[in-house]
Amino acid sequence: MNNNFGDRLSARSRSLRSFVLAAIVAVGLSHGISYGADASGAAASDIAPPSSSPLAPASDAAQDRTPTAEDIATVLNVRFHIGLQESLKIGHAVLNAAKRDTISPLLLLAVIAVESNFDRFAVSVVGAKGLMQVLPSQHRDRVQRTADLTDAGINVSIGSAILHDYIEASDGDVHDALARYSGGARGYARRVTDRMNVIKTAFSNTAHNNAFASPAALKY
C-alpha cells in the first residue's frame, strides 16, 4: 500500500471534484466520431454524443485533474467491493497504460468493468484472460508465452495497447475500435458507455459523501 495514502485522504474530495468535471468534458468516446456500420451491428444510438477524443494529448489543465491511483482504488473499493490493495494495483496499471497510450483512464476502467468486473483471474470460454480479457491466441505479437495475464500491470498494459491500435486503425472511431476489441459483440460500446457513467457517478458520490474522511470507510 502507498505510504502516502492516509496523508492524501483529506485532499482527495477536492481533487475528485475537479476530476469528475474534467471527465465529463474529456472522456467522451471520441470527437467527430463516425457512426457507420461495424462488426457488432450496433446502432448509432448505442453511443452517447461525443465530447473529445480519448487519444488527444491532454492539456496541462486536464493533467492536473487526472485522478491518482489512490482515487481510483477508493472508488473501486467502495463501489465495486474490490480489495484496497488489489484496487491500488489496478489504479497504477490503468494510469500507466492510459498515459502511455493517451487513452482516458475512465475508458480503460469501463472496458475492464465490462470485460471482467475487475476480476484479474477471469477466464472466458474461449480463453481470454484477466482484467481486459486478453486472448493470447489472437495477440501472439503482444502476449509472450511466459506472460502472466493475471498480473494487473501486464494485462492492462497489453489490453490498452490493443485498444489503442484498434482506435488508430479505425481513424479515431472509438465505437468501431470497441467493436473490434469485443470481437463484434452487439451493444458492446453501449455497455462500455454505461459503465463509464457508473464510474463517473461513483467518483462524484464518493467525493460528495466525504467517503475519504477515514480509512475505516474503505472495505478491504
Score class of each variant (00 low, 15 high):
Met1His: 15
Asn2Ile: 09
Asn3Tyr: 08
Asn3Ala: 15
Phe5Lys: 05
Arg8Asp: 14
Ser13Thr: 14
Ser13Glu: 11
Ser15Tyr: 06
Ser15Asp: 13
Leu21Gln: 14
Ala23Lys: 02
Val27Asp: 11
Gly28Ala: 09
Ser30Pro: 00
Ser34Lys: 05
Tyr35Leu: 13
Ala39Ile: 03
Ser45Thr: 14
Pro50Glu: 02
Ser59Cys: 06
Asp60Phe: 05
Ala61Ser: 12
Ala62Met: 02
Ala69Ser: 15
Ala69Tyr: 12
Ala69Thr: 04
Glu70His: 10
Ile72Glu: 11
Ala73Ile: 11
Leu76Ala: 04
Asn77Ser: 15
Asn77Leu: 02
Gly91Ser: 12
Leu95Gln: 07
Leu95Tyr: 01
Pro105Ser: 08
Leu106Glu: 05
Leu109Phe: 09
Val111His: 09
Ala113Met: 03
Val114Tyr: 11
Glu115Leu: 09
Ser116Phe: 04
Asn117Cys: 05
Phe118Thr: 01
Phe118Asp: 08
Asp119Thr: 02
Arg120Trp: 06
Phe121Asn: 14
Val126Glu: 06
Pro136Asp: 10
Pro136Val: 08
Val143Gly: 10
Val143Ser: 08
Gln144Glu: 07
Ala152Glu: 13
Val156Lys: 12
Ala161Gly: 04
Asp165Lys: 06
Tyr166Ile: 00
Ile167Pro: 01
Glu168Thr: 08
Ala177Asp: 01
Leu178His: 06
Ala185Trp: 01
Asp194Glu: 12
Asp194Tyr: 09
Met196Trp: 07
Ala207His: 10
Phe212Gly: 00
Ser214Pro: 01
